[in-house]
Amino acid sequence: MRVSTGTLHQTTLQHLRASQARLARLQSQIASGRRIERPSDDAAGTIQGMGARGALRARAQWSSNLVLARQHAQATETSLGAAADMVAEARLLATRADASQSAEAMAALARQVDGLLAGLLDEANRAQDGARLFGGSDTRGAPVEALRDEAGRMTGVTAASRAPEGRLLRQVGEGTLLGVNTSAEEAFGPGLELLTHLIALRDALEAGDAAAAAELQPLLDRDLERVAVAQAVGGVLARRLDHLEERLAQEEMRLEAARSQFEDLDIAQAVMDYQEEQTVLEAALTLSGRLLELTLARYLQ
């Protein structure tokens, strides 16, 4: 076959160009550390990598939601703990009231109960970052309003929330919505009876009616039990949040590994490929130089 001088040059140049292009691509990949620098490098891998990126971003947001949900749950738990302590103390004060107590002693007990009542009202209206904990999905206004007489004594309570049964739903996973709040009714009973029981206890103590105070003790036991149940439900929520957090962390690790597998470069392999390609190019340059020098013109005098 005839080989023209132009073909010899063109073929040599084309191979050198191809080798240089491969080297340039490897160099760029090594510099960026990425196997896929543009979608056309691997369209299927790009789709998979982008899917993993999207899933990672979603999980980052759900993790953030989970942190807020945990803060809400912890605040509720703290508030319920304080309420339980106060109810337990009120129950203890109720047991101290008996007919042998003087009127002053009974009045002192009544004042203590009144103080606990004020504390419980505070807890019922407790807010976390401006959002009421026990107001259902109406988080702005106080969920419990106290009715007072002219002297400022609390004579009753009324539920003021516009959505007392509303659930505060938070997204903490793919399709996973969690209700993070405890309603006032779940914590303080129907019609906020825990507070009305304490008002009744205070009134009984003020009146020196030890029998009425004694009758309230089983009701306070039930109130205490209800608060404990609400605390237990909060504990379940906390464990669920822990479990979800762990799952999100595992998913993030898996997704990051998948993203890296699709998009990132195997640096060791790429460096070896680069060295191999460099060797090939050097050999091609050397041989091309020699080949192109081989011409009859060099030997003709």
Binding site: R2, S4, T5
Partner: peptide, 13 residues
């Protein structure tokens, strides 16, 4: 080019 290209060696010969 195998048919119509110039080969310098061929021309020199």
């Amino acid at each position: 080019d195998a048919q119509q290209g110039v080969s310098l060696d061929e021309e020199l010969a």
